[in-house]
């Protein structure tokens, strides 16, 4: 397995007078799923967009395999980003999206022959359920030749059955990719992640035990026995 490394450091992001991100360091390697947790408005989505390169910030240091990039998304083969809301065009069917997005026939076929997708190929993105759409979006991005995937709430609004299928999908691509994942379904994030990072007060704090999530005020104390 070829191992790639994504490193994020020195991210500063202010929103008006408020410093949203001030002490950020995180890394991710191929074969790793790093879970980003944090309360609403703590800067998880902002951080992912800064890493991807679509959000301007005062300062940042993003490197992949030791090479620094200011806008990684403009360089082929580095990153892909799954945004919170659906990002697929709604005026063309899924089959046309696949033909446009995946030039390699074998990759297109992987998606087209997927048991959960093949009956929807003639539909448009807005004709799918939330779970079906999220699954398709993820499957599509997983076929891209990128080293890392940034997933912003992949489980949001998705029924438990699809959550499980999405988890399996991520696991199956671990040999070739690394994942940064954030979601409010913290149980799913805990299950799927090898490492956890909590964003609180603008800083990234590595979490080694779920009790720390309670200590930092992310999870209520009543969930201690569940985890």
């Amino acid at each position: 397995m070829v191992k790639h490394t994504l490193e994020v450091d020195s991210v500063l992001y202010s929103f008006g007078e408020r410093k949203l991100l001030s002490d950020v360091y995180l890394n991710c390697g191929t074969g790793e799923i790093v879970g980003l947790l944090g309360r609403n408005g703590c800067g998880k989505t902002t951080l992912l967009k800064i890493i991807f390169g679509t959000k301007h910030t005062d300062n940042k240091h993003i490197s992949i395999d030791g090479k620094v990039y200011t806008k990684p998304y403009l360089h082929a083969g580095l990153l892909a980003y799954l945004p919170q809301q659906g990002f697929l065009p709604k005026n063309i069917p899924l089959s046309e999206i696949l033909n446009l997005y995946l030039p390699q026939q074998d990759k297109r076929n992987i998606v087209k022959q997927n048991i959960r997708i093949k009956q929807h190929l003639t539909k448009r993105a807005d004709e799918l359920s939330k779970g079906e759409l999220r699954y398709f979006e993820l499957l599509l991005l997983l076929q891209l030749d990128v080293k890392f995937l940034l997933l912003d709430e992949p489980f949001s609004g998705v029924e438990p059955l699809y959550v499980e299928q999405i988890e399996e999908l991520l696991q199956s691509h671990l040999p070739t990719k690394g994942f940064l994942i954030t979601d409010h379904d913290y149980r799913a994030v805990l299950r799927v992640s090898q490492r956890l990072i909590l964003i609180t007060d603008g800083a990234c704090r590595p979490i080694t035990h779920t009790d720390e999530l309670i200590d930092w005020g992310y999870m209520p104390a009543s969930t201690a026995t569940e985890s």
Binding site: F52, T54, K71, Y73, L74, H75, A76, A80, Y81, P83, Q85, G86, F87, L88, P89, Y101, L141, L144
Partner: peptide, 12 residues
């Protein structure tokens, strides 16, 4: 949101 469809293929 659909701009991310293009960003993921390296288009700004």
């Amino acid at each position: 949101q659909q701009y991310y469809f293009y960003h993921n293929q390296g288009l700004s």
